[in-house]
């Protein structure tokens, strides 16, 4: 019904709305090509990346190319350096050796990170928390409107005037996602963003992540310890072992993906066995 209505709207208005209205998927898909060209994903090239903390050599030469708009998941056993890699990509820590390049000059607003903890300001209402994500555009006149759009996108428009402390864990994480999305980033890095959520909330958040990624076409890098989450969401799963990328597994399953399908289960099994055999060796 809604979709039908929208398709009868004039072209210009469509473009504006399609980006945010979850119901307008039909329209959106037609325009996806165009959309990706103008906004979205940046490619990412990492060469010989190294990082140590004191004597602890965490990353020992990472080489990786991620095409624009790809959804990459990074798995590996605890302490193998997943978060370290992500923080380097996001520019939060200093690189020891090697390089990370995005193929062009980037703005700080182009890269956003989401952590396991929502990191919301407890003393700011939900909307104000999302506005923080605008970075240097915070003061601009359309800040409110943009933050509201982002809230609609993550399905929390009705919570805009609440304090974070009254939200559930999943809702807080959705606000954090809205804050990360509001500046229309071109690379979005997630460090176990769903790690603290219960199973059901996780699944609905995974769907939300996939949806906004498909809508906006940013390059997504997801660190997770849940291999089934990795194969459900990603185009490609990287396994990190001993500071290097040990396996690079492509997930070709068509989207939307069927959870628990034989294809995904098979991939999940083989990635798990990589992880476990690495564990046995040490």
């Amino acid at each position: 019904m809604q979709t039908a209505l929208r398709t009868s709207l004039p072209e210009t208005e469509l473009a504006g709305r399609a980006t945010f209205a979850p119901h307008a998927r039909v329209v959106r898909e037609e325009r996806q090509e165009e959309h990706r060209v103008q906004a979205s994903g940046l490619p990412l090239s990492i060469r010989g990346l190294r990082k140590s903390f004191g004597d602890n050599e965490v990353l020992r030469g990472i080489d990786l190319h991620i095409p624009a708009g790809q959804f990459v998941a990074i798995v590996g056993k605890s302490g193998c350096g997943k978060s370290t890699l992500l923080r380097l990509i996001a520019g939060l820590d200093k690189i020891d050796a090697g390089s990370i390049s995005f193929g062009q000059e980037i703005q700080p607003e182009d890269i956003r990170v989401m952590f396991q903890e929502p990191r919301l300001l407890p003393w700011a209402r939900v909307l104000a928390n999302v506005e923080v994500g605008l970075g240097r555009d915070r003061a601009s006149s359309d800040a409110h409107a943009r933050a509201e759009k982002a809230l609609i996108e993550v399905g929390l428009a009705d919570k805009r005037d609440q304090w974070p402390s009254v939200l559930s864990g999943g809702q807080k994480q959705r606000v954090a996602l809205g804050r990360a999305l509001v500046s229309r980033p071109r690379v979005l890095a997630f460090d176990e963003p769903l790690g603290a959520l219960d199973a059901l909330t996780r699944i609905s958040m995974q769907r939300l992540l996939e949806r906004v990624w498909r809508d906006q076409g940013f390059t997504a890098i997801l660190v997770t310890h849940d291999v089934s989450e990795a194969v459900a969401l990603a185009d490609r799963v990287l396994v990190i072992e001993e500071g290097r990328i040990a396996h690079d597994v492509t997930v070709n399953a068509a989207r939307p993906r069927q959870r628990g399908s034989a294809e995904l289960a098979g991939l999940e099994g083989s990635i798990l066995s990589h992880l476990l055999s690495a564990d046995d060796r040490t």
């Binding site: 939060l92 607003e109 903890e117 923080v132 804050r179």
Partner: peptide, 27 residues
């Protein structure tokens, strides 16, 4: 410190960081 890091990531200047994160947190 995670909130302070968040503020830095989102491009807050020192003044903003104080006004929006540190001072309310210390209140």
């Amino acid at each position: 410190p995670q909130l302070i890091e968040m503020g830095r990531i989102y491009g807050m200047t020192d003044g903003e960081l104080f006004r929006r994160v540190i001072f309310p947190g210390a209140l």
